[in-house]
């Protein structure tokens, strides 16, 4: 499996609501290495190890987008965002409407002097032009999902840009890890879980953790990378390696172990310290059932929740190396 090639496929595909294309791709890859089941967007793969102890490795596979709430007679849509999206960046942005067929639409951009939006606080004021006119209602229904449609592309060096790298970067990292663990003698059971509805409030990870019932979990997600307008104390460095999470809600021993493995093996890493909840699925997995010891590793990412997210492929490799050592220890 080539990490970049797979990530491009996953980034270009869609998993939101009733659309499961990215999950189908991930399930297909994962099934080569693990006993895999797919239920809608959620994909779970089990690898048998020694004993009864189970480690769940989790990454959400859903993406931010929109859902159609109204269609007018001239083919303009009103939508509600699913996940946090910067409304200011929407005017004149092309999107895909997942109706009976895929429709390219564009958010209206009306200049302020003609009554366009000046305060971006209400998404219902930002209509989508479907170019279909009165025919829109034949193809599109209320409840249909709308997604960004940018195709992944290379930037300089090992950095790439695209939509949904949050959190397909995490998914591809775990797919690579599954490949590396495949055929190895595992010290415990491993369950890979690609979960749904993280962007709506960490919902899918709660139910997945309930079903898997792990003893321990490591959550893999993306986090803020450095950029000119991001305060340096709020972010990691792009290309700086795994961001190891530290927080009152995370298991301190896991965080420490991850740091010591990175140090011992001269792996690039950085710490991400939070004062409480992490804003990731770690928040719900850790309090599933009678509690799950949970760690968090993040891949640095710029422009989160836009369709020009940026990550460095080397960071994904580094995170994979770290998790491989964490699981296999000296046998990695």
């Amino acid at each position: 499996m080539n990490i970049k090639e797979t990530l491009f496929k996953l980034s270009n595909a869609v998993s939101i609501g009733n659309i499961t294309d990215a999950s189908v791709i991930a399930a297909d890859k994962l099934s080569k290495y693990a006993k895999t089941t797919q239920d809608g967007i959620t994909v779970v793969g089990e690898m048998q190890g020694e004993g009864k102890y189970t480690l769940m490795l989790e990454a959400h596979i859903d993406e931010v987008g929109f859902v159609v709430t109204d269609i007018d007679d001239k083919g303009f849509l009103t939508v509600k965002n699913c996940g946090g999206i910067d409304l200011r960046s929407l005017p004149a942005r092309a999107v895909t409407v997942h109706g009976k067929e895929k429709v390219t639409g564009v958010f209206c951009a009306t200049p302020p002097h003609l009554g366009g939006v000046t305060e971006y606080d209400d998404i219902s004021a930002l209509k989508i032009d479907t170019l279909l006119g009165e025919k829109a209602k034949e193809v599109i229904s209320v409840g249909d999902f709308v997604t960004f449609n940018t195709k992944a592309a290379d930037l300089c060096g090992s950095r790439i840009t695209g939509k949904s790298l949050d959190n397909r970067a995490g998914v591809v990292c775990l797919l690579e890890l599954a490949k590396r663990l495949s055929g190895k003698k595992l010290p415990f059971n491993i369950v890979f879980a690609f979960t749904d509805q993280e962007e709506l409030g960490c919902r899918g990870a709660g139910t997945a953790a309930f079903c898997v019932s792990p003893d321990e979990a490591i959550v893999l997600d993306v986090s803020f990378a450095d950029a000119p307008d991001v305060p340096s104390n709020d972010c990691g460095k792009l290309s700086g390696g795994a961001m190891i999470g530290m927080s009152p809600i995370l298991d301190k021993a896991i965080s420490k172990k991850l740091v010591s493995i990175a140090k011992e093996n001269n792996m690039p890493y950085q710490t991400e310290v939070m004062g409480g909840r992490t804003g990731t699925n770690g928040d719900v997995i850790s309090i599933s059932k009678s509690g799950v010891k949970t760690g968090l590793v993040s891949i640095p990412l710029r422009n989160m929740h836009s369709d020009v997210e940026i990550i460095d492929i080397n960071d994904i490799e580094n995170v994979c190396d770290l998790l491989q050592k964490y699981i296999l220890g000296g046998n990695a």
Partner: peptide
């Protein structure tokens, strides 16, 4: 010939 993106502060931090 050089692809770039206009970046910004993630909405989460605004």
């Amino acid at each position: 010939k050089t692809l770039g993106v206009i970046g910004g502060k993630p909405v989460h931090l605004c």
